[in-house]
Design a protein around this nucleic acid. Sequence first.
DNA 1: GTCTATATACCGATAGAC
DNA 2: GTCTATCGGTATATAGAC
Lengths: 229, 229
Amino acid sequence: MTDHSVADDGLEARDDPGANGRKYRPGRIRERNREKILLAAEEEFALNGYKGATIQSIAERAELPKSNVLYYFSNKTRMYSAMFDDILGRWNQVFSDIRPEDDPAEALASFIRAKVEMSRRYPLASRLFATEIIQGAPFLMDHLRTNMREWVRGRAAVIQQWIDEGRMAPVDPVQLIFLIWSSTQHYADFQVQILMVENKAEYEKRDFDHAAEFLTDVILRGCGLEKPA
Amino acid sequence: MTDHSVADDGLEARDDPGANGRKYRPGRIRERNREKILLAAEEEFALNGYKGATIQSIAERAELPKSNVLYYFSNKTRMYSAMFDDILGRWNQVFSDIRPEDDPAEALASFIRAKVEMSRRYPLASRLFATEIIQGAPFLMDHLRTNMREWVRGRAAVIQQWIDEGRMAPVDPVQLIFLIWSSTQHYADFQVQILMVENKAEYEKRDFDHAAEFLTDVILRGCGLEKPA
DNA sequence: GTCTATATACCGATAGAC
DNA sequence: GTCTATCGGTATATAGAC
């Protein structure tokens, strides 16, 4: 269960314009099908879990024959891994950095906003990630032990420096990161619960704005910070 | 998938002392086996998901033949439902109430502590619940729509009253409940991630104490409250 | 009540025609 | 590259001996 392979298909975006202006790209169909499959897999895995999702159902959602799916991803575990590579890549593009010279209030607020926005834009990815962690992270263990640990340590060091400089209340930086993670992801992972409790049919953009505002409000004040203008 | 039946086996704890002082209770073996199965089911379902958990593996963990398990719970879905009835019953016993005349700081602090303690004592139950919600709550939908909605509304009303009386900062009471839920459950649901990031082999009691202290510290201050003595 | 044997169904993966 | 047919394995659930 440590087969956390990198999706290494040739995805170079080589443009090779044809005669009549229509772009010709070798592997364009392949690329498109790959994306369709990964998107379908995201929905099926998120909704039914690893075992519960079947290659058949993924194929149907992607509007491709089952064997075609197995042609692109030789087996189910590889497909699952490739999906996480996809998700983690997407996340890395979005994550903004924080630096010691930044204003703590502004940095934390923008971090919270970015995470809430992620919950809004990629709820399936968030749920998949949560399910994977809850079940013991068999596929992402390596990622947690290396990349994520380093990521947290880097951010925690910056926060600690802010504290040492007396620019915010002395709270455990690592716990603070966990608090921001959990409270923001909650809106994606527990969407159904939130909707049911609030008796809403579906989320609207303003719900996320409201959530982000509430969280920055409470967490920043909890860190002894004034809300940025 | 709406077969959310209540486990209605005769579980009356009728004591019927025998001749030599040894308690005789009809259905005692049945009760014991039921508990063993439900405990095993909790572990298997939490670790592998609904589809991933097999009756065979549950039976082995409970040290009973597979058919014996199917004798107590006629099928897999009933077993899954009975497990949640069990969990929800356990939770209802623990949940403390909050009243308008309580001190907001103390009430919220004890609520946070109780939830963290729950994450420590019943991590599997928390993970099962999370997985169920993430996957759209097919079995718990009814519970969310009725019991849980009422529970939240009752607590939110009390918090709102505190706000109206100027005893705490004006924050959205429902969002505050979500914040406390998400941040406390996180320690059970994302245990592996937390351990990996902090490079720890396993949780200790003091880790939970530390987490509870951090959360009460930040959240209470975020609500404009002083930490209770 | 307990357990063996088995019916039935479905899944992942492969072989091979086109 | 695409698709049909199918193999081997395993799951739930039941029938029936004890």
